[in-house]
Amino acid sequence: MVEFSYNLYLLLSAILFTIGAVGVITRRNGIIVFMCIELMLNAANLAFISATGIHKGLEGMIFVFFVMTVAAAEAAVGLAIFVMIFRLRGTISVDQMNLLKG
């Protein structure tokens, strides 16, 4: 049995990132699009952690910590924006978000 190759983790990260990208492009529900973005952030986190294993430094974990902080702030503000849009328009379908259109 061979020792792990960290490329397997990078490949898994690529697969998860692609699934998230498919979701962002094809889904119309705003909240599901948001969840797909969270999935893409997690795929990037997995790549950072496997880079920690490759370079044997702990900087990747620090990066993941900051990505988690940004994701938490983003989720709070983004969901508040969705609540606002729902109050204003009665829907959160991303096709109908044309408020800025003149």
Binding site: Y9, I31, F34, M35, E38, N42, N45, I49, S50, T52, G53, M61, V64, F65, M68, A71, A72, A75, A76, L79
Partner: peptide
């Protein structure tokens, strides 16, 4: 991958806090 701190904060922050908000 031996990242125990990140794993626990993944469960607390993502699976706990953020998904509860969603």
């Amino acid at each position: 991958l031996n990242a125990t701190f990140i794993a626990i904060s993944q469960i607390i922050v993502y699976a706990g806090a953020i998904m509860m908000l969603f």
